[in-house]
């Protein structure tokens, strides 16, 4: 029989969390695969470190060699697709961004990831001459992390508006946005002087303000839009299904004559 656990206030309590839990790392394996061994041999000294994770080759390189490495992978090793390119924010831990390029070899059914690290404020060389798919990916990386890409054909924000401030995928960026983000639409549409009229964002979806006649309707006790009811609203119930046309005929207008 299962052990009895008291269920008092079970929903009120937070779930048990292990404070010392560490996310397990993907095990790193030696490069033993024949194809991957050939890839590492082709890269030579450009590959600072290479290992295999989950059947994928991970190559750590110097950030200045990224175009040379990816060109070698594309032209000599058959990695003809760049499926993803982005960055990871390790600024708090190491003061660096980790950039990765995920490459695919269709003929060999192999994937390789090229990983390099750059410091904050450093730029990376674009690989758009090699892979056109990196065009949008590098723009997104610039948008989300603020990492500049040298010689990119059209480096501008891709997801956020052009006049946005801040880079949302940085770990220092708050999820609910900074002050600029929380007032963005008000500033843009109405102007900063309307901040006082519209008020701050309501992040509580269950909030109901019965005195707010602009946002909340009182069905049956309605008042015109924007009326001040802080003094108390009139308790006059409104009849909705009122007849459109008033029938002034008290008796039937059409009568069937009696035949006999």
């Amino acid at each position: 029989m299962r052990k009895y656990v008291p269920k008092d206030n079970v929903q009120g309590k937070s779930y048990y969390t292990d404070r010392f839990w560490v996310a397990p790392r993907v095990p790193r394996e030696e490069v033993t695969d024949a194809h991957f061994t050939g890839v590492v041999a082709t890269l030579g000294v450009l590959a600072k470190e290479a290992h295999v994770e989950l059947g994928q080759l991970i190559v750590h390189i110097d950030a200045r060699d990224n175009v040379a490495v990816i060109k070698a992978l594309k032209e000599a090793c058959g990695y003809t697709q760049c499926s993803e390119q982005s960055a990871v924010d390790y600024l708090a831990k190491d003061g660096e961004f980790e950039l990765f390029y995920q490459l695919l070899n269709v003929n060999e059914a192999k994937r390789a990831r090229v990983v390099c690290r750059i410091k904050k404020g450093e730029a990376i060389e674009s690989i758009v001459p090699l892979f056109n798919s990196a065009n949008f990916a590098e723009r997104e990386m610039f948008d989300m992390f603020g990492i500049k890409v040298n010689n990119h054909p059209f480096l501008k924000r891709i997801l956020m508006p052009d006049d946005w401030e801040g880079h949302p995928l940085l770990k220092t960026y708050p999820l609910h946005g900074d002050e600029f983000a929380s007032w963005y639409e008000v500033d843009k549409i109405f102007g900063k002087e309307y901040r006082d009229i519209i008020g701050p964002e309501n992040r509580d979806p269950a909030k109901v303000d019965r005195h707010d006649t602009k946002r909340f309707a009182r069905i049956g006790y309605e008042v015109p839009f924007g009326t001040d009811i802080s003094e108390g609203e009139t308790q006059k119930e409104i009849e909705y299904s009122e007849a459109l046309l008033v029938n002034y005929n008290k008796k039937e207008s059409k009568t069937l004559d009696k035949r006999r």
């Binding site: 999820l175 609910h176 946005g177 983000a181 929380s182 992040r203």
Partner: peptide, 8 residues
Amino acid sequence: NTYATVQG
């Protein structure tokens, strides 16, 4: 409930 969505 994020930075990019109009909250109402």
